[in-house]
Write a protein that binds this DNA or RNA. Sequence first.
DNA 1: AAACTGACTGTTA
DNA 2: GTAACAGCCAGTT
Length: 103
Amino acid sequence: MTEQDTFPRRIWQIVAAIPYGKVTTYGDIARLAGSPRAARQVGGVLKRLPAGSKLPWHRVINRLGEISLTGADLDRQRQALLAEGVEVDHNGKIALERYRWQG
DNA sequence: AAACTGACTGTTA
DNA sequence: GTAACAGCCAGTT
């Protein structure tokens, strides 16, 4: 097996496992990936996703239950979440206790 | 190799 | 409720 075990690959695998209609946080993904202090790097991986990726990156939000993106990007993520039934207010705030995914 | 960057988080005030 | 700071650590220059 020539498969490498790189940080981005672990992140991609975890994000791919977030169920439809659920969300999780950067910190939780980092913890599941085995680098509990690498929440920032999780954001870095998602930011650099290959164009055309089918990963549900929009299901990842911050620990306060808010979308971390701004401007047009925030709006895109909000629309993607609304489209799968996640309630997001106009500021990008989500009821984390209600939609949180526990891997 | 070294410096810089940042889709984060916890603490402090 | 806000804002400022300091750790954090993998990717990019």
